[in-house]
Structure formats: C-alpha cells, structure tokens
Design a binder for these strands. Structure first.
Lengths: 212, 212
DNA sequence: GAGCGTATCAAACGTTTGTTTGAATGTAAA
DNA sequence: TTTACATTCAAACAAACGTTTGATACGCTC
C-alpha cells in the first residue's frame, strides 16, 4: 500500500505538478495562474493550497533538477576526450532547452526565471546553476589548459551558456522573424554543433593568447 | 511657445516616460504597475490613461530606438576594417545593455521583453531587431567572406547576440553567484573585448570550414 | 474678469489575482 | 456499520490590478 498503487491524492498531486510545469515554462511564474493550472489538472482551485501550501510551494516542488544532474553525471563518465565531452554537453543541454519531446520542463522553467527573480531563484542557483557552473568550469579547464586565467575561463563559460540560452530566450522573436521556424531533433543538433565549433575555436584563441 | 519652454503637461508626460522606462526595465511590462510608475513620476494614477490611453500606449511611447540606430549609423561610418567595426559594435551594444550611466533604457526593456511577448513586441521586432539583424548580418558577411553559407552566418550572428544578451538576462543569477559583482565601464569593456576575441576566432573557424 | 478647453485630482469601478472557508464526499480502520 | 480522518468542492474572501469618473484647479484667449 505504501509501495505500489498511487492513492488518488497522489495522482492529483502529480497532475498538478505536470500542469504547473507546463504553465510555468510557457508563461513564467507570474504569468501562469493557479486557476489555469488547476483547470488543466482537472482539480479544484483550492487543491494547490491544500497540497503545496501556496503558489510558491507548487513552484518549488515542480522544479526537478534530476535530469540536469543525470546529464552531467553521464557526461563525466563518457569518453575521456574533453572536447568531445563539451560537444556532448552542448548537445544534451540544447535538447533540454529546445526539444519539445524531451519533457525536461524544469530546465526550461529555470531558463525563464533567470532574468526574472522568483521566490525559488535562490534554490535554483544553489542546487542547479552553481553545480552546472562547477561542472562546465572544470570541463573547460581541461580543454584550455592550466595557463589560462580563472577570469578568462569563466568568460568562456558565459560565452557558451549565452549562446545556448539565446535560442530559448529569444524564441518568440526568432519565431516572428522566421515564421516557418521549428526546432526538430535534427535542427537542434545542427545548432549544437555550430555552438561547439564556434566555442572550441574561441577557447582555442583565448587560451592560446595567454600561453603565447 | 511651440518651440522653447515645455508646457507643464509635457513635463508630466516626460516624467511618466522616464519613470516607465525605469520600471519596465527593472520589473518587465507585467511586473511594473501603473500605480508605481505614477508614484515615481509624482503624477496621478489617471495620468497614464489621460496621456497615453492605456498601459500599452505608455510602453509603446517609452520605447525609443534612436540610440540603437544612431549606434549602427556611427558604426557604418567608422573605420572601414570590418573586424574593428565588429569590436566597436559589441562594445557599444554591451554598454547599452549594462552601463547604468548610459541611460539607454529602451535597449534594456527590449532585452527583457525578448522572452516574454508583449503587446509591443511586434513593433520592437519590426523597428529595432530586424534592422539590427540586417546590420550585423552585413557586417559579418564582410568578415566571413562570400563563401560562407547564409545559415552558418546567421548562426554566427546568434552566437554573438547570445553572448551579449547573456550578461543582461542572467544578471540576477550572476549577482547571486558573485555578490561583489558590479559592472563599471572598465569591466564592461573587458567583457566586450572577450566576446569580440572569442567570436572572431569562432567566425574564422566557421568561415574557414566552408572555404577549405 | 469672464469664459473655455486642458490637465490634475481623489475616489470608485469592474476584474483578476492568490488564498481561505465550511460543507460535502471519499477512504480506510475499528 | 460506524467512526475518524483525508480529500474535494463551490463559494466567498481580501488585495491588487488597469481603468473610468466627475469634480476641481489651471492656463489661455477674448
């Protein structure tokens, strides 16, 4: 009874979380309304406050950084070549940000809340972004070599993250500029490949500058 | 009387516009409230609707793309070396996005509204972003040479804009990761220089790939 | 100074928001 | 079946929002 079948209460909890992830990733925390979330979850308006205390609690529980951490773990165990691992990281990260079929909405919620501080931003920074920066920083250190300064390396990291996040943040604009635009799996990989090529060349130049 | 001294009505109009630019760039269009704007402009709540019809009208008039266009015009007339002109563009763009003393808030409002469609987004795209893309596209074409494909060139443009916008979009997060962080004129130029170095190396690699 | 159009004001409007309430319903043990 | 608790529900709550109103004060022309 504690193990197998989910109680009906746990089912509505999960329906609420799913609907919340959808709504938050689409309209942001402020833009998404409790009523709309409950409607999509086929639950009563009071359900959010009963199960999660309030809207903030719903956001906190809707965030799930497991896919992001799993991605980093798998990457660390992959082929030892750091440049290939950077390519893999960029590809996986872009898929999380753009691929509709991926289902990793928490990553897209995160991206949305970067610019617009939310009650949950401290938790997001602490549990997701800081570890991500650590991971990517170490990976770039392997590629750039020990001579490259800490500040230069961090700027390279920002250059990579900036390129990736751009496609998510500016999607409404790019959609208006190129109405026929749609990101399928193939197109995402092409973009990821470009970012990797572009960035590896950039890192090579930056790290070479200080070594020369 | 039509030329020199501003009527008291025009003064409150300008106070409202200034307060609106401040509020929209800080809290976004949704987050900023008409009441807060009027309070900071020392005007009555009804002033917005009297002078601009409604909140949307206030946003539309608060946007001013003149600085952005002037920057592009000055850039086009500058030193003919396209690589130097790209460096200049990145520097000026970053100053608009980050420098507090610059006063080009419309640029920061624009950056904020990229991800969150607003009643004015269509106007922003048509009058500011599309021309900006044209300008930057042509500049990159000069640098990359005629052999580089249109798609590759556009992706390079996205790489550059992504790097620049990252520092604006992720400012709340970077602030939390490095609490001592503050962008002064000197620091912004250092970042702009990095982005230019990083990107020119990237463009060199991308354009070389297709020419080889 | 009278008259007129413009601009400002306090106050209220109608909605929408997140949240709370108390009754009704469901679930599971005694 | 009865009892006790957990969950759902319709309804209402208080607060905040953009907007409207009608009266008041101002600036200008005649």
């Amino acid at each position: 009874m504690t193990h197998e079948a989910k109680t009906v209460s746990e089912q509505t909890r999960e329906r609420l979380l799913d609907a919340a992830r959808e709504a938050f990733s689409q309209h942001g925390f402020q833009g998404a309304t409790v009523r709309e979330i409950c409607r999509r979850a086929e639950a009563n308006v009071a359900a959010v406050n009963y199960h999660f205390g309030n809207k903030d609690g719903l956001l906190a529980e809707a965030l799930n950084f497991a896919p992001l951490k799993a991605m980093q773990l798998a990457n660390a165990k992959a082929d030892g070549n750091p440049e290939v691992r950077l390519r893999l990281f960029i590809r996986d990260f872009m898929l999380m940000l753009l691929d509709e079929t991926n289902g990793s909405l928490p990553c897209r919620i995160m991206a949305r809340e970067l610019a617009d501080p939310t009650p949950a931003l401290d938790k997001i920074v602490r549990e997701a972004i800081a570890p991500l920066h650590d991971f990517l920083g170490k990976l770039l250190r392997e590629i750039a070599g020990g001579k490259t300064g800490e500040a230069e390396l961090r700027r390279c990291m920002h250059s990579i993250l900036g390129q990736c996040l751009y496609y998510r943040h500016s999607h409404p604009v790019l959609q208006r500029l190129h109405p026929k635009l749609r990101y399928d799996h193939k197109k995402i990989e092409t973009i990821a490949e470009h970012i990797a090529d572009f960035s590896l060349a950039g890192i090579g130049y930056i790290s070479g500058k200080t070594c020369a």
